[in-house]
């Protein structure tokens, strides 16, 4: 049992974790090196764990603590390891990765998406009689989801795209731990397992693409189009 006087502090800490979580999502759009993407992803996953621990204490939910521990093991540790094992050296490269938009434009769009997420979340928060915890986690989760999708759209390299994908899942979870803290634990474990399968498959595919085609810029694969099939 936690001393009640600590609660406001824990709440602030949760809000702070949310802020940094969102910041990492912005970083994933903007950074130029594959390795930085991985570092930001690890940081984002750690903030997700932090938020899960805070909420677990505040809501007296042991499930959330377990979710936090599972995330702590799977995302910052296993996923980078899996990517290194399957993709190999590509994760370590400091090579600049290309983007469709330049960085300021990408950041501005990410900002617009965040504002959109807050506007979208407002009626939901009202309808759900949401308290402060949901009020901080749901909009950030939504914003992270949208920014992750946007990152997917602008990235061309396999590893940063994969990390953007998993960051979308991070964001859905970030909202989920607040709005559905007693979501069945087995489901959460299976979802974490699913993300590991995804990482493994993406790693395999990336390696196969690298061997077959000699690039990991999967965004530039455009053989399969109606027009090309004449």
């Amino acid at each position: 049992m936690v001393y009640p006087g600590l609660f406001p502090w824990l709440q602030s800490l949760n809000a702070l974790a949310g802020g940094f979580f969102l910041l990492c999502a912005f970083g994933l759009v903007a950074v130029r090196q594959a390795q930085d993407c991985l570092r930001l992803f690890v940081a984002q996953s750690l903030f997700l764990c932090l938020s899960a621990f805070m909420l677990g204490i505040l809501l007296h939910s042991s499930d959330l603590i377990v979710v936090g521990i599972i995330d702590f093991i799977s995302k910052p540790v296993v996923i980078p390891w899996l990517l290194r094992r399957t993709v190999g050296g590509e994760v370590h490269t400091r090579r600049e990765i290309t983007q469709v938009f330049n960085i300021p434009t990408s950041l501005l769009i990410a900002l617009a998406l965040t504002i959109g997420a807050y506007l979208f979340a407002m009626p939901l928060l009202r309808a759900g009689n949401a308290g402060e915890l949901i009020g901080s986690n749901l909009p950030i989760g939504l914003a992270g989801l949208l920014i992750g999708a946007f990152t997917m759209a602008v990235r061309r390299e396999a590893v940063p795209m994969a990390l953007a994908l998993i960051s979308m899942e991070n964001s859905a979870f970030f909202a989920g731990i607040a709005i559905a803290p007693d979501f069945p634990l087995i489901a959460e474990v299976s979802i974490a397992f699913d993300v590991l399968i995804l990482t493994f498959l993406i790693g395999l595919l990336t390696r196969a693409v690298h061997q077959q085609i000699g690039t990991t810029a999967v965004g530039e694969l455009t053989e399969l189009r109606e027009a090309n099939q004449s």
Binding site: M152, A158, G176, I179, L205, E223
Partner: peptide, 28 residues
Amino acid sequence: NTHEALEAAWKYIVLMFIGAVIALLGFL
């Protein structure tokens, strides 16, 4: 395991997962 098959699989896995995450938020 051809160029086209890998491209199709990549597109497939990415879109499937994005769809899944959006649906997950819906279920939450």
